[in-house]
Design a protein around this nucleic acid. Structure first.
Length: 596
DNA sequence: CGCTACACTTAGAAGTTTTTAA
DNA sequence: TTAAAAACTTCTAAGTGTAGCG
């Protein structure tokens, strides 16, 4: 029924103009679009000279439920006001999710929901447990089912509408380039879903209005028009920043931005720079390592703590660990914010000396669990840092990220804690590729090696994922496929054997040909079997590990490009279309002898 | 310094589309 | 032709790090 709701009438205000269709530039400029890396760079601080865009796409307005969809309170039908109903639908849509069973989620939701109610509603609805959203929930399930069952034509129509929206709002002109915008749609209202044990889960994320929006573009550009009857909060022309649109979100009070796609010049250049900084670290990392080993002996506690923390950041690729406001976010830590309760010291464990057992929640509340043998000096220092402390006390009480980064800045220009993660990730990939690639392997086996190298990095960086729900089942399916293939191979071999015997007796052309074709069949099946087995290994090893994050954010793409060129692997086997767009600069510049 | 505001990168989950194979 | 699985895209939360202020 209401399939094509995206981008409601709000964005169909009059006075539309085509962006980027005819920027009034001579031909060659469109060619420059995909090779910004050959252009001159801007001086420090200036991000652009010209910026023109059409502003954001707002969330579609709320459409009240049909009359026959009921909400029940205390067993009785209750008609809700539009505002209260909208918020109720947010909860109803999440009814199957574990979130809605959590005490904090329910409490936060109910508190914010009540704020949207009329005074009568408020006095009637006093307990969330008496609310029955099941009918609403069923309605939404039916809706999504109906969406799946839509005819080809209807689906096509929606697709076209999305394409139109993308064409119109999804691009901007920055200097001489037409660039893709990453997130041109404003986040719709809904219930806040934090990660892990977030104290604000379930709170109402309010609807963003044009009056909340700050537009950033150049003075001499066509300023985007707000929807009819509305005004922007502000229009500014700040070319020291890269964002096009910003607004303040109501849960944490933080600022959200609309920025460009990773394929854009402004993102790509920065990404390139990041890897260049990491390569500079490569040149001085030995010196830095010697330095912090010396500092373990310092008579200043502050220096010792700094040196041990840096050792963890370097060896274990831990994040810096900024302080966070208590009670505002989930309780997670990084290196500098580790507490005594997050590590256990084992003078001896499983035959190893001086083992540190880490157990803490990091970014996104992903658990970091690791047992690491460390040098005696580190171990002794940790014992010292933990003396006379409570479990909830800071391990590095004389240290924070600001102190650490200031020190790093002195060791190398542009050096911060996160550069170690980038450096160690990239150097590990390069090393592992060297070690694991077997020149005699075929392409699928080489790709398996690549994935294994990638996996080593993901493990280092602790990039985890929830095992796919269907993992066990799909693994079994694959195994039975392998078994079937094995039988097929045995059959093919038998046939080959008898064909050979036959040819020996008959000695004619026809039977020789038959032997040849049977040989080929055996070979083909062997290859297929091998491919399946490789696939099974790869998948099993990947069960709980996410490769994407490191590939996208930590691995110098030139290493991968060089590896592909060296071994004749098509780049498409390693990077999909989006990734190739993001790394276009690296694909263009890296030769097979590139060294990180 | 220590604080906050701001800008920008990094992150896994959820949703959607494409591919595979029965 | 269908359904399951895989691949890919979108979404937006959650980090890092710097600048500017008192």
């Amino acid at each position: 029924m209401k399939g094509a709701r995206r981008g409601g009438e709000w964005n169909q205000w009059p006075g539309h103009w085509e962006l980027g269709e005819d920027p009034g530039l001579p031909g060659p400029f469109s060619l420059q679009m995909n090779c910004w890396w050959e252009e001159e760079r801007y001086p420090e601080g200036i991000k652009w000279k010209f910026l023109e865009h059409k502003g954001p796409v707002f969330a579609p307005p709320y459409e009240p439920l049909p009359e026959n969809v009921k909400f029940y309170y205390d067993g009785k039908v209750m008609k809700l006001s539009t505002k209260a109903e909208e918020v109720a639908t947010f909860f109803a849509k999440m009814l199957d999710h574990e979130y809605t069973t959590k005490e904090i989620f329910r409490k936060n939701f109910f508190k914010d929901w009540r704020k949207e109610m009329t005074s009568e509603e408020k006095s009637t609805i006093t307990s969330l447990s008496k609310c029955d959203f099941t009918h609403m929930s069923q309605y939404f399930k039916a809706q999504s089912e109906a969406r799946k069952q839509m005819s080809k034509e209807e689906k096509q129509k929606i697709k076209e509408e999305n394409e139109r929206l993308l064409k119109e709002y999804g691009y901007c002109v920055m200097d001489n380039h037409k660039e893709r915008i990453a997130n041109f749609k404003i986040e719709p209202p809904g219930l806040f879903r934090g990660r892990g044990n977030h104290p604000k889960m379930g709170m109402l994320k309010r609807r963003i209005m044009p009056e909340d929006i700050i537009i950033n573009c150049s003075k001499d550009s066509k300023i985007p028009a707000p929807p009819p009857g509305h005004k922007w909060k502000e229009v500014r022309h700040d070319n020291k920043v890269t964002w096009l649109v910003s607004w303040t979100e109501n849960i944490q009070g933080s600022i959200k931005y609309i920025m460009l796609n990773p394929s854009s010049r402004i993102k790509g250049e920065k990404d390139w720079q990041k890897y260049e900084t990491a390569r500079r670290l490569k040149k001085c990392v030995d010196k830095i390592r010697n330095q912090y080993r010396e500092d373990w002996k310092s008579k200043e506690m502050k220096v010792r703590q700094r040196a041990v923390a840096l050792y963890f950041i370097d060896k274990l690729a831990l994040r810096a660990g900024n302080e966070k406001e208590e009670g505002e976010t989930a309780d997670t830590v990084g290196c500098c914010s580790l507490r005594v309760e997050h590590i256990k010291l084992h003078p001896e464990l499983d035959g190893q000396e001086y083992v540190v057992e880490f157990d803490f929640l990091g970014k996104d509340s992903i658990r970091y669990y690791n047992k690491v043998p460390v040098e005696k000096r580190v171990f002794k220092n940790l014992q010292l840092f933990m003396e006379n402390k409570q479990p909830e006390d800071d391990l590095f009480d004389r240290l924070n990220t600001s102190i650490l980064n200031k020190h790093l800045q002195d060791l190398m220009e542009g050096l911060t804690a996160k550069v170690f993660r980038t450096y160690n990730a990239s150097i590990t990939l390069q090393q592992q590729l060297k070690e694991l690639t077997n020149p005699d392997d075929n392409i699928p086996a080489k790709i398996l090696s690549y994935n294994r190298a990638n996996r080593a990095v993901a493990i280092l960086c602790n990039h985890q994922r929830a095992p796919p729900k269907t993992f066990e089942k799909s693994m079994m399916n694959l195994q039975s496929k392998i078994d079937a293939k094995k039988e097929q191979l045995a059959d093919a071999r038998r046939e080959l054997k008898s064909a050979k015997a036959d040819a020996k007796v008959r000695r004619d052309e026809k039977s020789k040909k038959s032997v040849e074709s049977k040989k080929k069949a055996v070979q083909r099946i062997e290859e297929q079997l091998m491919k399946l087995e490789v696939q099974a290994t790869d998948r099993e090893e990947n069960k709980q590990i996410a490769l994407g994050t490191s590939k996208l954010n930590y691995l110098d793409p030139r290493i991968s490009v060089a590896w592909c060129k060296k071994w004749g692997i098509p780049i498409e086997k390693i990077y999909n279309k989006t990734q190739r767009e993001k790394f276009a600069w690296a694909i263009d510049m890296a030769e097979e002898d590139y060294e990180f």
